[in-house]
Design a binder for these strands. Structure first.
Lengths: 343, 343
DNA sequence: CTGAAAGCGCTTACAG
DNA sequence: CTGAAAGCGCTTACAG
């Protein structure tokens, strides 16, 4: 059963392909009668325009690409959901690719999407990405691109982010306010802007409040697929290095949960011996015990906002308008739970 | 900067478009010299074939569609990852859509994918789907379609599943073996085959082992976005209705975790007062306390297997071969943890 | 109000 | 070894 074409409808009705095409698109210069006949037949034959031909003519694919570091991740899967649902509303389809935190893969995937001629690209950078030629290349081709969450400040494009520095400051301040004197930080990888910003927020909160900044209290983890194990490992090391630490601000909930698991198993009491604040508000943080104090990071909203911005830019590009990059910052909040003492 | 076309390369080199096209595709009937020239120029000009035109000619999009009930879901996001990574290896791109457990949406999305002319469709049915015309329609058009996890037995297509009945039997048997006498079941929605099968496995395990089957011990939850709350609610109700229950087999981990939260807050001891077995092995089940005994359901593997099967069928269809539907059953296993007593 | 014609950018059967 | 030509299925400027 081959798909029906305009030509078949035209032949059946003994009119031209042109008229059929126009009738289906409700051009004003086609008679009501003809429109009626065409539409009826199209319906009975279950006519669906051939997207390939339409795309070739209109040079639009009504498809966008999404590159995300990890799919199985509470925050990112919420972002995906936000993007996909918003895109569908506007008649756009979303192609998903996972960069696996690898720069090489990310580069290849950008190429893939470009040769697929998607109408725009949404990306959250891989940890491994330090060079932005592949991204700038997209922008140079006037292909709309919006970054979210893991962005590069240096790239001139729209961004949807949270204020990581401020959020980290709030998280650390909470530890200070409840009386912690010796606060460690488990940070993310070295390159990503958000792990840098969270670190800077932590540091500033200490210094603003008369606590010394001690680099030996900062532990790194890559936050890839092994976040949980990294959290455990760092916690174990911390107990060996510094048994006087009374609070930790941890870059991501999953790492925090790994750390808590280690502390629990070694009999270190949370929050009596050590207070913990995570980041992102993964669902599981509310159901573990003790429940984890954390920063809520609005993934679904971020996905929606990123698509909306991209959509605007796709429309603008189509109308030959120049795009002025815009940075949208979403609100975060501290969620106090049982992994930190009451104050 | 407009994309480069074959025509431009041809003009620059003073040869025909035909030869350029053939040279790039390494046709044997083009001289080495010409091939070299063409390929070099294509590279410097950063030529990328126009997918729209290629698709129009080849009638292939090298794109598949994926319809999934919920994206933010540990099991499903693992499936997505499996599909996307496997597809990329074979040069296929994946368009993701979320049906939100709604039959109406699912139907629309099938239509969307069909008119997008994807090469094949991967689907896990919505809870609300009881009519399969939209699916049969796809199959009638000889468009490859593979179902996974939430399938309909009645539809003639390939399927990738686990043996839900057997797995549920194993889970329930474990409760029986550790001495439970009064075992409840929190089942999923009424329609999905897997919630039916898990229920049947539960029932059979009871009857095979001389325990009476009591319908009042079976509670339903829809397992949509509010699984956790439903688990809590069911647990609360169970304590009111039947305080003699000493074990529960629960359809999904997230519901089980909701139930455990309720039991914990009411001072009901797990596993001393009540033993719990979940289903799916979500990551968080290993980090909550007590950790949850559950059935491991291999999401990543399922995604990979589903794509592989679809890929085979796409190739077969292309070669005009007839497809014999195949059902692939993946292994599951019981993961014993602290929510059930040692035996 | 209708339609012939050109063209989007490729691929491929065919001729030379 | 090379290329002219047809065609994939649509859209749209133009003529009548």
């Amino acid at each position: 059963m081959k798909p029906v074409t305009l030509k078949q409808i035209a032949e059946e009705l003994n009119i031209s392909v042109t008229t059929v095409s126009k009738a289906l698109k409700d051009y004003p210069d086609v008679s009501k009668k003809t429109k009626g006949l065409v539409k009826e037949l199209a319906k009975t034959l279950n006519y669906k325009p051939n997207t390939f031909a339409v795309n070739l003519r209109t040079k639009e694919s009504k498809t966008i690409g999404l590159i995300i570091p990890v799919i199985v991740h509470h925050f990112f899967s919420n972002v995906i959901k936000g993007i996909v649902s918003q895109a569908e509303k506007k008649g756009y389809l979303v192609i998903i690719l996972q960069s696996n935190e690898s720069y090489e893969l990310e580069k290849k995937q950008i190429d893939l999407l470009l040769s697929q001629r998607v109408d725009g690209i949404l990306i959250s950078l891989a940890n491994g990405t330090a060079n932005f030629n592949h991204i700038n290349n997209v922008i140079a081709q006037e292909k709309p691109l919006v970054m979210f969450d893991k962005i590069a400040k240096i790239v001139k494009c729209s961004k949807v982010i949270i204020d990581d520095r401020k959020a980290a400051y709030t998280a650390t301040l909470h530890l200070i306010n409840i009386g912690c004197k010796r606060i460690a930080h488990f940070r993310g990888a070295l390159l990503p802007q958000n792990s840098i910003d969270r670190f800077l927020g932590y540091k500033k909160a200490l210094l603003d409040n008369g606590l010394p900044y001690d680099p030996s209290l900062v532990y790194i983890c890559e936050c890839g697929e092994r976040s949980f194990e990294e959290g455990k490992k760092n916690a174990k090391q911390l107990l060996i290095d510094h048994n006087d630490v009374d609070g930790i601000f941890i870059n991501t909930d999953l790492v925090a949960i790994g750390a808590m698991t280690e502390f629990n198993s070694q009999g270190v009491k949370i929050p009596d011996d050590i207070n913990i604040v995570g980041f992102s508000n993964w669902f599981m943080s509310s159901v573990i015990s003790p429940s984890l104090t954390t920063i809520n990071q609005p993934g679904y909203k971020m996905g929606k906002a990123a698509f909306k911005q991209l959509y605007k830019e796709i429309k603008a590009t189509k109308n030959k308008k120049i795009i002025t990059p815009k940075t949208i910052t979403l609100e975060t909040e501290l969620i106090k739970r049982d992994s930190t003492k009451d104050n």
